[in-house]
Design a protein around this nucleic acid. Structure first.
Lengths: 239, 239
DNA sequence: TTTTCGGTGACAAACTTTGTCACCGTAGGG
DNA sequence: CCCTACGGTGACAAAGTTTGTCACCGAAAA
């Protein structure tokens, strides 16, 4: 039995039984006492809170407050999750909610059913209220929702986008670009786009963009956004 | 060098260089030709689209259209992501957006900086527009946002919640419960709560709840929501 | 004081990953 | 038509990692 599966099995058994002795666990997962103890150590290293008591009636116990799970999700699965949560949360007026719904359905069909079960189980673990108590609600009002329908269309139909851009010095210019990606670095959103008149990628802060409009009759292909090794691929973000 | 790190390095090198020969990659990552070829096989199994060409001037190339990354995120990291995206997306009127912001800050501080970098890099990969084209926007209007402030308070302050609940048969009852969790099974939201008059957990469909209010002067502790092995922990959800 | 239980260190056995080598097929250049 | 550059595969031993066994420690309950 694989080490990951064994960790998973141990966690699940502990969740189910509440408490168990190491020998019971060893028997359950078909491994030796020593291995189970090693596994418990590894799980603790991973952040699981596992209480233990010596002596008669003792055993190990998973702290019920701990939200940790053993699951590690691939990016595709995480994307499915993000899409699903975004779909539920996003108000109708926010962009890409339709896409999100469509994506969710698509991903649920595409993933093997045990993956879907894992996702569900993971969502179950998202008990609200585990995080810190209320604090200031920081302002995230940098993006004007009124801009977004034009963006959505530009992305989905792959049509050029024209808008007015105010740079860091306050100068206004008019741009026509091929929207390639949205870059989200909280709390700012950037539009990553190919500027064909300059023959290069440019990054535009969303809150500096105004009057976006689709350029009818245009159509572009996706370009390969260049990546740098070991650094954020977009080096010079407008401040 | 670890197998995961090597896969990562190969993918990044291919993204940076566009194309590379197996021998170059082998030299780069400090492994043998054979191992790199095995790795490429493994990456293909994982869903990466890697083109290859024989002969002079040939080499391997990562399909730029493929959004795949090698990253596998732990649940804690995924939660950080979810929280961050939710924070950005959630309109002010939706619940838990304050919590989300606070959580994001907390998590960014708690995670080692390379994890934050991974998260950033992962967000960079969330190129919008990779999913299927526009489809019907399915209705997600089952949750009345007006309900949610009372819920948020009940969760965060751990105060009892009283509301009117209409069951599957249409009968209205009044309930007073300890809200323990929100269960999100698209497209429905459930409130998982301890019903102290019945001494048991109950599941309430959010769209059947009306007139929620905090019960002043009450206070409860978190309870351990029981999990079943290998199945959705909440077996009998109201239809 | 004995039994039950978590926890540790050492070390060989079992298993997995890696490197080496020999070899195949294809494409381009001379 | 041969040579060279390149991706790709199978076999097998070397290197590395995980696991089981065993001996032993300390705490707590009967």
């Amino acid at each position: 039995m694989n080490i990951r599966l064994r960790h998973d099995a141990i966690v699940r058994t502990l969740r189910r039984n509440g408490t168990a002795t190491v020998d019971e666990l060893a028997c359950q997962v078909g491994a030796s006492r020593r291995t189970v103890l090693r596994d418990i150590g590894a799980l603790r290293d991973q952040g699981f809170v596992i209480h233990s008591e010596c002596g008669r009636g003792g055993g190990v116990q998973l702290d019920p407050q701990s939200v940790q799970t053993t699951a590690r999700l691939s990016v595709t699965e995480v994307f499915a999750l993000l899409v699903s949560v975004a779909a539920m949360r996003a108000a109708r007026s926010l962009p890409f909610s339709g896409l999100a719904d469509a994506g969710l359905a698509k991903i649920e069909k595409a993933l093997p059913s045990d993956k879907v079960r894992d996702l569900r189980r993971f969502l179950d673990c998202l008990h609200v209220g585990q995080l810190s108590p209320k604090q200031d609600i920081s302002d995230m009002g940098t993006i004007d929702p009124a801009l977004l329908p034009a963006f959505e269309t530009a992305f989905l139909q792959r049509q050029n986008l024209r808008f007015s851009y105010r740079d860091a010095k306050g100068a206004e210019t008019s741009r026509e670009v091929e929207p390639q990606a949205m870059l989200i670095l909280p709390p700012l959103w950037y539009l990553v786009a190919w500027d064909s008149s300059r023959e290069d990628f440019r990054h535009f802060r969303m809150d500096r963009i105004s009057r976006p409009e689709i350029v009818e009759g245009t159509s572009f292909r996706r370009r390969h956004v260049p990546f740098e090794d070991d650094v954020c691929p977009f080096r010079e973000l407008p401040r």
